[in-house]
């Protein structure tokens, strides 16, 4: 058992936890974009808020910064969702009454701003060095590295299942039908007396809360977070996942996340094999550029997604 959890299998477990972390974020974005048509370009910002909130709430006291407060991890996760939701209100209230692209601009802005805060507000976030000692609950009890990773995978899988089922119920409910009505024809939805702004805000905040939860999941898995974990590239990866999976389909969102993450890590490994260490940073840039081009190609030729069945 212990040997099996080393080597390739251990890597698979690690890979899957990260893939499911992305799946959670993608589910959040799917609620915003796939079901409500809200264009969030600041996904990384909401994940960042979640990760940092949970880390600040749960890490042991650190004389170098405010907190940590040493609270239990579930409280940290709740705090992560709450604070991501609050930031969603901050941009949602001014932007959601206006044309779609205003939301794109403001969410882009909040991600940039939060990245700056994480990087520079050292007394709260630890600055460029990030935050260490984010608790990994029951680490020793579950047999350290290998066993714990597997247990965490089960936990994240359960969480994804829970969020997926929860969102599926919500989107199938009358509330979800109103969202789709707004998405298809805003004027018509308004005409039948639906408070378009409120429904949009609810969906936006809820989606952001799921992203915040994902951030906390990440923080407690790695045990260490830094601003560079939440760069704009994260937003982009998640968009690629949603588009590949097919917006408006919860299962597609999860599948898209796993698939794109597999392609991403696979191509990263190939680069590792074939590119000398000194060229690595530039090769990574080429990888990102490739994803940018790929996204444009999907938009052009398969606008309903690669796996999606809607059309």
């Amino acid at each position: 058992m212990v040997e099996l959890l080393a080597g390739p299998l251990a890597y698979l477990v690690f890979f899957l936890v990260i893939a499911l972390y992305y799946a959670l974020i993608t589910l959040g974005l799917n609620l915003q974009w796939g079901f409500t048509g809200l264009f969030n370009v600041g996904v990384a910002g909401f994940v960042l808020v979640g990760a940092y909130s949970s880390a600040i709430l749960t890490t042991p006291d650190d004389p170098g910064r405010i907190g940590g407060f040493g609270l239990p991890v579930p409280l940290g996760m709740a705090g992560a969702m709450l604070s991501a939701g609050l930031f969603a209100l901050l941009v949602g209230i001014p932007a959601l009454r206006l044309r779609h692209d205003y939301l794109a601009i403001t969410t882009f802005g909040i991600a940039v701003t939060l990245q700056l805060v994480a990087l520079n507000l050292q007394v709260l976030t630890g600055g460029p060095f990030g935050m260490n000692f984010v608790p990994r609950p029951l680490y020793d009890e579950l047999g350290g590295q290998g066993g714990w990773n597997l247990a965490y995978l089960l936990f994240v899988a359960a969480l994804v299942l829970l969020v997926w089922r929860g969102l599926a119920r919500l989107t199938a409910s009358p509330w979800g039908r109103v969202l789709r009505a707004i998405r298809e024809d805003e004027a018509a939805a308004a005409a039948i007396g639906k408070h378009v702004f409120r429904f949009r805000l609810e969906a936006f905040v809820l989606g952001a809360m799921v992203m915040g939860l994902a951030g906390a999941v990440y923080a407690h898995f790695i045990g260490f977070i830094a601003p560079e974990d939440f760069l704009p590239i994260l937003t982009f990866q998640v968009w690629a996942m949603l588009i590949v999976g097919g917006a408006g389909d919860h299962r597609g969102a999860i599948a898209g996340a796993v698939l794109v993450w597999a392609i991403w890590t696979g191509s990263g490994m190939l680069l590792d094999l074939f590119v000398p260490p000194e060229g690595k940073a530039q090769a990574a840039a080429l990888q990102v550029a490739g994803i940018g081009v790929a996204l444009c190609l999907v938009l052009l030729f398969r606008p309903t997604g690669l796996l999606g069945r809607r059309g």
């Binding site: 048509g37 264009f39 370009v41 779609h100 692209d101 794109a104 704009p232 590239i233 982009f236 968009w239 940073a281 530039q282 090769a283 840039a285 080429l286 990102v288 550029a289 490739g290 994803i291 940018g292 081009v293 996204l295 444009c296 938009l299 052009l300 606008p303």
Partner: peptide, 24 residues
């Protein structure tokens, strides 16, 4: 294609590709 936001998204993808090409 008629979906206004698809253009915004495309510009986002193009920005990423262009920026990283320059970095490369």
């Amino acid at each position: 294609a008629g979906v206004a936001i698809a253009v915004v998204m495309g510009s986002f993808g193009a920005a990423l590709a262009l920026r990283n090409l320059l970095f490369f």
